[in-house]
Design a protein around this nucleic acid. Structure first.
Lengths: 323, 323
DNA sequence: CTTGGGTGTTCGGCAATCGCAAACACCGAG
DNA sequence: CTCGGTGTTTGCGATTGCCGAACACCCAAG
């Protein structure tokens, strides 16, 4: 286990620069040194790592694997250093790769992240927004945001907020078609559904009494979309009633482009989670960011903070029952 | 990122030997060297790792974490070296930590492992036998054996064998109480059940016709045990009918201490899996061992081989030559 | 067929670095 | 107060690492 780590670093540089000469000039060291280092490393490992030819070097199979292994080790080492350094000053150093759904990411996670980064100037951050399912582990992410159910037991999860969902339609639609007075009335309406048309769409409401099973109704979907913002736009366009997460619907509600229906019969809420790989050591950056997320979102998330709750849902001449 | 790795190794040695002096004498280097190395490391990390006093050294908080991180890194590095070295000669070097259930482990896994180790002399191995659920990930295992259902989605799994189960009782019991002619008849008998008495025990048989649901019967349990070998012994003692994995029942069947009942109505079979953590690189040792397991067990596992239905509890010898 | 420019490898000599041992500073137990 | 145990500092010696030039090699272009 007593390999000269400089040899390993030299090898990595040779690989990444595609040759001994290139690496030597880039690092301002002599090529003889690099040549010797790689040779020594090979003799210690009893494996040829590079095929040498006058045309350059090519990785052997073992060389390729060893290189990738060592990239891993180096990254792991960097984590260790990050974790430990800046300990005294309390500042957080390192890097953070985050995956989150589009809408939530742009609207709410982003702003919070930028504030977080201002607080921690030595922290690098990369945010990947994608509505598809992303594999946190194999994607090499440090943190992910999941809305709804958790499928992946191999991740740690922390609840960061409830995502209340609301029934909405456009004022124009309400004027034209009337509004449902009861849950059952919804069956008479066109609904904007999430997902493909092949699965029967149903909406689920919180039970009237504590302990009862949630009430479900199967709705008739004219439009099926797999994107929350598209659903919101379809609702604004008057295509029907949609069940939208509050964090998507909130701005449109505030601008009276959408109105809330059946507010006394709330839909069951989703939960928003922060998920992260279960490793022996969770970096201080991840811990701190999760804490910030929870602190900001747990009780009253920003999309619930608007002043739209108190306003009468009165649009034009139509009085839509509120309460 | 360009820390002198010797400094880190020195630090680790100091920590593990509990002091600079002790480490120095154990490594046959001067204490001045160690002192300087640790000091330099600290200055590079901008963190105090050790509290020095004339009474010895004590780890700071950061020092503790850094030490543990580096243990991790070193282990990871050793894996890399193991993976790559011995590549040419085809031999496998490294170490392997395995977890498996008691009975399966002693009777069938053990013998195979010892043969495997003879094939790979440069391989270290540790086998933990435990019937309780062991967490492969947090336990730091490289490989585990699971029988029945898989609960942990964070592990990779490979099917290594079917575990046929059989209904058995002692000849004496059969003489005394008669034998069931149909599945329904079982209800008239005393049964030896797995698990606690609080859950209704049921046995499940493969359906008569392809595509049907399995037939289940709830049995009456006089004896409840949570260990396969105890169940076998109880059955031998004539306490009733038991549903046992073939790999437990086989020797007793061969010695006519148990007889098989309703052989034309087989119980649904379990599956035996090899499970291992999903890391970017699965070590060659793990891959090779799984391949060996599959090769030996997949088609006709030893407990289904007539000539081996004797004494699988005698470790070693027999099974080895049958390879 | 020759030659030039690009590989990576080898060699000799210089010197910086590393490492040791001894001396030093410190503190608590006896 | 002294002794025995820490870890730290210092000065000197030489091993080690390093560089640059010369070398060997091969392909491609002329």
């Amino acid at each position: 286990m007593d390999y000269d780590f400089s040899d390993i670093r030299a090898y990595i540089q040779v690989v990444e620069n595609g040759g001994i000469n290139a690496a030597a000039s880039r690092l301002n060291v002599s090529k003889s040194q690099l040549s010797a280092r790689v040779a020594r490393l090979e003799s210690e490992l009893h494996v040829k790592l590079l095929h040498r030819s006058p045309r350059g070097v090519a990785l052997t199979d073992a060389g390729q694997r060893f290189y990738e292994h060592m990239r891993d080790v180096l990254a792991r080492m960097q984590q260790a250093v990050d974790d430990v350094s800046g300990e005294e000053s309390g500042q957080i150093v390192g890097s953070l790769r985050i995956a989150a759904p589009m809408t939530f990411g742009t609207a709410y996670l982003g702003p919070l992240l930028y504030a977080f980064m201002r607080e921690h100037p030595a922290l690098d951050l990369s945010l990947d927004l994608d509505d598809r399912y992303v594999d946190i582990l194999s994607g090499g992410y440090d943190l992910g945001v999941r809305i709804g159910r958790l499928y992946d037991s191999s991740l740690m999860a922390r609840r960061i907020a409830a995502s209340r969902r609301v029934l909405v339609c456009s004022p124009e639609y309400a004027q034209r078609n009337g509004v449902p007075e009861t849950i059952e009335d919804i069956r008479q309406h066109d609904c904007i559904c999430y997902g493909s048309a092949s699965v029967a769409p149903y909406w689920q409401f919180v039970p009237q009494e504590e302990g009862e099973a949630p009430r479900q109704i199967v709705v008739r979907g004219r439009v099926h979309l797999n994107n929350g913002e598209s659903m919101r736009d379809a609702a604004i366009a008057g295509l029907g009633i949609a069940a939208l997460p509050m964090f998507i619907a909130a701005p449109a509600l505030r601008d009276h482009k959408l109105i809330e229906l059946l507010p006394e019969s709330p839909l069951t809420a989703d939960t928003i989670y922060a998920v992260y790989p279960q490793t022996r050591y969770v970096s201080r950056a991840v811990r701190a960011l999760i804490d910030t997320l929870v602190a900001d979102f747990e009780h009253t998330p920003p999309w619930e903070r608007d002043n739209l709750r108190g306003k009468p849902n009165t649009i034009g001449s139509i009085d839509v029952k509120s309460r």
